[in-house]
Design a protein around this nucleic acid. Structure first.
Lengths: 117, 117
DNA sequence: ACAAGTACTTACCCCAAAGTATGTAACCAT
DNA sequence: ATGGTTACATACTTTGGGGTAAGTACTTGT
């Protein structure tokens, strides 16, 4: 059982981080294994769900929609569903999503300069 | 028991991600909750272990050294220990570490433009 | 009739990251 | 000799991210 301590470091931080650390703020949006990869694939233009699936073969369907939903909630991707059968759902980057290009680009720059490759 | 499948997605990715995705490469270095915060604090100049501890009161000592060691191994911070008692250990950013300023800066930019604040 | 494609959903499991708590070595001041 | 300071180390527990596997609804092709 053991209830979660309210005073735990984790709980305490949930609050402050969002308001006080812009870097953590960004990390929460594009951090994690798959998110940057998904965003990268959407940078070359809108894609259907199945197109993304084929573009990133290693991702599981669960992870794909889970992250697409989070990215939606964070206003980074836009979901367009046509009410037809079979369903046609297209995902594209929002303006904030497109603006992430600058961030990802600076990462790539750093990786190229300091990477082990 | 159930041994880990060698063909698991996780294992498969460990390999490709490092060599194929520069963004993931960066995420592995500065991702996680505390690393960007530690790096941020070192950007204002070298700091002693105890100074970092006081600057980031919510971090546990375990997390602090654990991340400092990883950042060291990744050639992002430099550790200078003086063989005196009580010990004086100073951490500072390496050149690659300082170069991360560009990356963090673009994140802050994005956060300011698209942040909920 | 039945497989195949589309876009999901759900239940369950595993592991690594993060947190809690405590210990250590060396010295100095009182 | 007892407590304080510094910079860690280490055992144990918890949590959440990610993975596996299977099911759903609806239609088209054979």
């Amino acid at each position: 059982m053991t209830a979660i301590k309210e005073s735990s470091t984790r709980n305490f931080n949930k609050g402050v981080a969002l308001t006080s650390c812009p870097v953590t703020f960004v990390m929460e949006k594009i951090g994690g294994y798959w998110k940057p990869i998904i965003i990268y694939h959407l940078m070359s233009g809108p894609k259907r769900y199945s197109e993304l699936k084929r573009a990133i073969p290693q991702i599981t369907e669960k992870m794909l929609i889970q992250h697409l939903k989070q990215l939606q909630a964070d206003d980074i991707v836009y979901r367009d569903a046509q009410a037809v059968v079979p369903p046609v759902v297209t995902y594209s980057l929002t303006k904030p999503g497109e603006d992430l290009f600058t961030v990802l680009d600076s990462m790539v720059d750093w990786a190229v300069k300091n990477g082990s490759v």
